[in-house]
């Protein structure tokens, strides 16, 4: 009885946060699942249709094209961010004298509101400086989507850079010196000493960037052309719910987007061995 009471008391510290989390995420998600089982719109009312919305989506070419577009964007953005972040982070680590200023500068793009980044990057190819530099002419929705994707890459690279630079500073100096004394080549030192040390932090930030990029909405939304064939899954979900007002179908898309995020997490967490950080 005492042990049980002690367990409850320990849980008591956690309980308010758990209750709030359930109220603001689990309950709305439950409502989304329930709505997804209906054909629902403000004009026609609501009708229970079971899994019809899901079977419709599974057979929909438009939906799978949107999912594929999202995944391509995620892969492109995160791979470039990782590559640039590793290079820039290593450079910052070696030129330590600039680190106090650089650690502020690299974080500025990240803390700029994403919608501001999207608008300015879109404008850069839509009659802006990139148009005038490279004579791009009329930029269509695809060119604008590429521009805002580059903008998203720009926003997140600073975070990866900062994490890499900070992790490199924590590589055990004696281990590194021993490797040098043992005659290890640069590549061997990188593989055997540096990478195992910075790996967990880089894995954590990579996993976060994957899942954060997957849910990006404002970029595709501001470059959207209703006739465009290429849409991301978040954009298609948003327009289905808030433009077409097909609430049931949009809810089914929302459920599939969340399942997609869970699948992505299930892939990247073991792949990057993020569990060590949790």
């Amino acid at each position: 009885m005492t042990a049980r009471r002690s367990g409850l008391r320990r849980l008591g510290w956690l309980l308010p946060a758990v209750v709030v989390l359930v109220l603001v995420t689990v309950v709305p998600l439950g409502r989304v699942v329930w709505t997804s089982l209906h054909r629902s719109s403000p004009t026609t009312g609501s009708e229970l249709v079971g899994l019809d919305n899901y079977t419709h989506l599974v057979a929909s070419r438009e939906w799978w094209l949107a999912v594929a577009t999202s995944l391509v964007l995620v892969a492109g953005v995160v791979l470039v961010q990782l590559a640039l972040g590793l290079v820039f982070g290593a450079a910052l680590h070696r030129v330590g004298v600039v680190w106090p200023v650089a650690r502020v500068v690299v974080l500025v793009p990240l803390v700029l509101l994403s919608v501001v980044s999207v608008v300015t990057w879109r404008d850069a190819v839509n009659g802006g400086f990139l148009t005038s530099w490279f004579d791009l002419g009329e930029a269509g929705p695809f060119a604008q989507l590429v521009a805002v994707t580059v903008g998203e890459t720009w926003r997140g690279t600073g975070m990866v850079t900062a994490v890499v630079a900070l992790s490199l500073a924590q590589v055990t100096a004696s281990l590194s010196a021993s490797a040098v004394a043992d005659g290890a080549t640069g590549l061997q030192r990188w593989r055997r000493v540096v990478l195992p040390s910075i790996g967990p932090a880089v894995a954590g930030v990579a996993a976060f960037r994957v899942l954060d990029t997957y849910r990006v909405l404002d970029g595709p939304l501001l470059t959207d052309d209703p006739s465009a064939r290429l849409q991301t899954a978040p954009l298609l979900t948003w327009t289905t719910q808030f433009t077409a007002l097909e609430l049931g179908l949009g809810a089914a898309m929302s459920v599939l987007v969340v399942i997609g995020a869970a699948v992505l997490a299930a892939i990247v967490v073991p792949l990057f061995r993020v569990r060590r950080l949790l």
């Binding site: 946060a17 989390l21 603001v24 995420t25 709305p28 998600l29 409502r31 989304v32 709505t35 976060f208 899942l211 954060d212 997957y214 849910r215 909405l217 978040p234 979900t237 948003w238 719910q241 808030f242 609430l247 949009g250 809810a251 929302s254 459920v255 987007v257 969340v258 995020a261 997490a265 949790l278």
Partner: peptide, 16 residues
């Protein structure tokens, strides 16, 4: 669960 909620696509919570 808290970390998962951190990366949850928030736009799915908009409609409900």
């Amino acid at each position: 669960a808290f970390v998962a909620a951190l990366v949850l696509p928030t736009f799915v919570l908009g409609a409900p």
